[in-house]
């Protein structure tokens, strides 16, 4: 039987030819085969070679994760698939923008917590702040949780970007 302990979260980097429909292929693969996407980011990383990098956070049993990687590798425009969770140490970062609305003591408290988390104020009115925070997803989770009682009105998160530590590169 599959137990909850067998299910692990993996961060997977996929280097693809930047052509139309490539993201739809990746997303269609996940929905069509019943895999889970927790976070997905994509942007062109090599305009000369026309390569985009997709960073996916997904979860599953070891067998499912192996399938996900094999299925991704099978897509024609996919150049490379790397499992950053198992292939050595990696750095994972996410950016979030938070709108916190309020006045008085709560407003001051939100600024104090932002300072502790090294979040920046990128917009300010008499009744609101927009904070920018960068870090591991767990750090963002913690910051968001603390902002909730202080007037958190809106959150925008980028999803995870990740890269392996050390001198080896993906291609």
């Amino acid at each position: 039987m599959i137990t909850q302990q067998d299910i692990r979260t993996h961060t997977i980097a996929v280097l693809v030819d930047n052509e139309s429909g490539v993201l739809a292929r990746v997303i269609g693969l996940f929905s069509g085969r019943g895999y889970n996407i927790e976070s997905l980011t994509v942007a062109e990383v090599d305009p000369v070679e026309k390569l985009s990098r997709i960073t996916l956070v997904t979860s599953g049993t070891p067998m499912v994760i192996e399938q996900i990687k094999a299925q991704l590798g099978r897509l024609v425009p996919v150049r490379k698939v790397a499992d950053l969770t198992v292939e050595g140490p990696s750095v994972t970062r996410e950016l979030a923008l938070l709108k916190v609305v309020g006045t008085g003591e709560k407003r001051v408290e939100s600024l104090r917590i932002a300072d502790i988390f090294r979040a920046n104020v990128v917009d300010s009115t008499n009744e609101s702040f927009v904070f920018e925070i960068v870090g591991k997803p767990e750090k963002l989770d913690a910051f968001i949780k603390l902002m909730e009682p202080l007037g958190l009105a809106e959150t925008s998160r980028t999803g995870v970007a990740a890269i392996a530590r050390g001198k080896e590169s993906l291609l």
């Binding site: 067998m63 192996e66 399938q67 094999a70 299925q71 590798g73 099978r74």
Partner: peptide, 8 residues
């Protein structure tokens, strides 16, 4: 020939 057929 298809790696995704293995261990599926």
């Amino acid at each position: 020939i298809d790696p995704s057929s293995i261990n599926k």
